[in-house]
């Protein structure tokens, strides 16, 4: 019976498919309606101010206003690329971000996996709350603590170093230590907070999969590897792609508070570089140009990363 009606139904389907777009929108009008408020918001509050990026191509005079300020074309970008320091700063920014990707990105995942394995509810809740505390401590205070900690005269770390018979190390003026110190601080500050999104993703994992894994004889590690991790892979990939998009961002506060001229060679990144130029010159236009440069690079990287992820079936779009 079905065999004879099939060709008729599929013909009808094909006819419908011809008036695709309009029909689709009408059929799914709710979906498009839902998009309206959000995108209206983005249009007004994100895209309209984005027009202000023309500042990067002008010499902004606040009094004259954006429209009447004179055009200078690519002058700011020329300045940026001609500057000898640009390439050092670029290198520092990239290397620091790579360090962060290497250590600060996986850390919350590992911690989330560990937390997920805790069965004792009270321990779980209390430890989670404790783990979020560092996120709220401002960088100013944290940097002060780190400086105290690493002080060559009164710091705890150097007391241990001396007890071991060595001379005190002045950690914060040695370029070799800078990245380690900075990334460790960032891990410490962000790892607890970073677990939240992964824990949320883990709640979506079907518990019966654990049961079947156990039946198949998997131990705890194997359960994590074959059930939990795959369950949060999409989340990991999404966050990774987004992180790549901001690879030239390093966070101004923590670098500024912990760096000094002795560590400029590894520590000076875009944010601090622009800050120092801005101090001397206060040029909003220049800062806008640097920002635009970073945004463009980020855009390209995100597109590439998403394309790569797509080939693994894990794209954002």
């Amino acid at each position: 019976m079905q065999a004879s009606t099939e060709p008729i139904i599929s013909a009808q389907h094909q006819a419908r498919r011809k008036n695709t777009v309009l029909n689709y929108v009408l059929q799914n009008k709710w979906l498009y309606l839902f998009l309206v408020p959000g995108f209206l918001y983005l249009l007004v509050f994100k895209y309209i101010p984005m027009l202000g990026l023309v500042i990067a191509f002008k010499e902004l005079s606040l009094v004259k206003g954006i429209m009447a300020s004179p055009w200078v074309g690519l002058e700011h970008f020329q300045y940026l690329f001609e500057s000898q320091e640009f390439y050092k700063v670029l290198r520092n920014s990239l290397l620091l971000s790579l360090y962060q990707l290497l250590w600060a990105f996986p850390a919350p995942i590992v911690l989330a996996l560990m937390l997920n394995e805790v069965r004792h509810m009270l321990f779980k809740r209390v430890s989670q709350t404790i783990l979020y505390l560092p996120h709220f401590i401002s960088w100013v205070v944290l940097a002060g603590m780190i400086i105290n900690f690493l002080s060559p005269s009164t710091g705890l770390v150097n007391h241990i170093v001396e007890a071991l018979g060595m001379k005190p190390i002045h950690f914060l003026i040695e370029p070799d230590y800078f990245r380690t110190i900075l990334v460790s601080a960032e891990v410490w500050k962000g790892v607890g907070w970073g677990t939240i999104i992964y824990l949320a993703a883990m709640t979506g994992i079907d518990p019966t999969r654990y049961e079947s894994a156990k039946i198949d004889g998997a131990n705890r590690f194997q359960q994590i590897w074959y059930v939990t991790l795959p369950g949060i892979t999409t989340t990991i990939v999404v966050l990774l792609i987004l992180q790549v998009g901001v690879i030239l961002d390093n966070g101004f506060e923590q670098v500024f508070l912990l760096y000094n001229p002795m560590t400029y060679s590894v520590a000076d990144v875009f944010e601090t570089y622009t800050y120092r130029i801005g101090l001397i010159d206060g040029r909003l236009s220049f800062a806008a140009a640097v920002g635009l440069f970073k945004s463009l690079v980020g855009l390209v990287l995100i597109l590439i990363a998403n394309r790569i992820a797509r080939s693994f079936g894990n794209q954002i779009w």
Partner: peptide, 26 residues
């Protein structure tokens, strides 16, 4: 502040200057 102080190579050299001075002092 003379105009010369706002040129890129001058401002960049300030970085070298600061680094060297501090290194000498230490």
């Amino acid at each position: 502040m003379p105009e010369a102080s706002k040129k890129p190579n001058f401002m960049d050299y300030k970085k070298t200057w600061d680094q060297t001075i501090m290194s000498i002092v230490l």
